[in-house]
Design a protein around this nucleic acid. Structure first.
Lengths: 210, 210
DNA sequence: ACGAATATGTACCGAGCGGTACAGATGTCG
DNA sequence: CGACATCTGTACCGCTCGGTACATATTCGT
């Protein structure tokens, strides 16, 4: 795998693998959230010293954003897969079920994004907070657009409030992520998803419901 | 209103109203969460100095717990009202609707509990985290017991997984609180609630649905 | 009036935070 | 070989955090 980091042609070469170090940082951010993950936590987990971190990643905030990119790229692939499902119902089913799987890992419980949002109370973390909110909002928009298409396709009712439906699904997903952080196991989360799907609010009588 | 704080019979009398000070502290904790609310934030809002705070409330953690009690006592009364509704459906409807009202205040957005849970990353905040999780778990248990009764009453299906249903409602409520913290307005939250109620998953055909 | 008890304000503590200055090590160029 | 550029480790910076020592002020019981 080719590194996505710019490496200089001249000068002393880096003595560690940036990909591995970033993956280690990701785990720390995932578990602790942005603010609670201290530089000491990070450098220890990454196996590098502080100036090396700054040399390779800029600062804590840039490191976090790169870790967030990696997180979305590797752990949240199921989102795009969900959006590609043929019906809105299947999209939501896949989204919530795979989300449950991804966030029920006992070693890294919960969602990295959710775990980090509310951690950003200080003024210094304001931009991180905005970044996270923006990414979440982006997903909500994608969901709404998916539901608009479903309306055209005819697998949800024409009078569906797609805004509210997207917000509803997002609220559920985020609530589940929060519960996962507090120790809910995979079985419990699947129960929640089943309960939500049992009451799928916008189904057309004539649409297949998988 | 009689103060709930022990006041000594002898010694210099307190120069501020503990109730008002606690209410001011509550607002700060609500907005910022536990860890992000610094002692400087708190003392400034409460209009007292640091040693006065420690003299009256013990320390930051005890102050938080007292503020949390006040929060539940004053802002979350609708929970017990919801549990007293005649049907499970009305319980959930009332719970979510009033929750939306309570958490959509632009000045103090979101839920104090939710805003504080994930803020507690440090080791020092471990006990606060546990306290918050315990209170949430208590509410979930109350909900489950309410649904068990509803099963007996016949307004939800006998084969309902009340554990999952309670977790589902809690996930939704917490997810909504999280969205409220990120700026969702009252109308948006009501849309989410309507969407959830539209798909009320456990209704009996023969039960009134308000 | 006097001691006991509590509240108040100033001024400070040690710890941890994110971030960096600086010197030495290690590499690619001419 | 240098000149230059980059990485690495030590040791430190200023800042904020939660919490407190201490002297002073104000009330009670006797």
């Amino acid at each position: 795998m080719k590194s996505s980091f710019a490496s200089a042609v001249v000068g002393r070469p880096r003595e560690f693998c940036t990909e591995n170090a970033l993956a280690a940082a990701l785990k720390v951010f995932w578990r602790k959230g942005y603010e609670a993950a201290s530089l000491s936590d990070l450098t220890e987990a990454m196996g590098i010293t502080r100036p090396s971190l700054y040399c390779a990643f800029g600062n804590k905030e840039e490191l976090f954003k790169k870790a967030l990119d990696l997180y979305e790229r590797e752990k949240l692939v199921f989102i795009d897969q969900a959006l590609a499902k043929p019906t809105a119902y299947e999209t939501v089913e896949f989204l919530l079920m795979k989300g449950a799987d991804a966030h029920a890992d006992p070693e890294n419980p919960g969602c990295m994004g959710v775990n980090s949002v509310l951690t950003c109370g200080g003024i210094a973390s304001e931009s991180v907070r905005q970044e996270l909110t923006a990414r979440r909002f982006g997903l909500e928009t994608k969901l709404r657009e998916r539901f608009e298409r479903a309306k055209v396709d005819g697998d949800i009712r024409k009078d569906t409030d797609t805004d509210a439906l997207a917000s509803y699904v997002m609220a559920l997903a985020q609530g589940m992520a929060l519960q996962a952080s507090s120790g809910m196991d995979l079985a419990g989360m699947r129960g929640v998803v089943k309960m939500a799907l049992q009451g799928w609010p916008c189904g057309c009588p004539d649409a297949k419901v998988a």
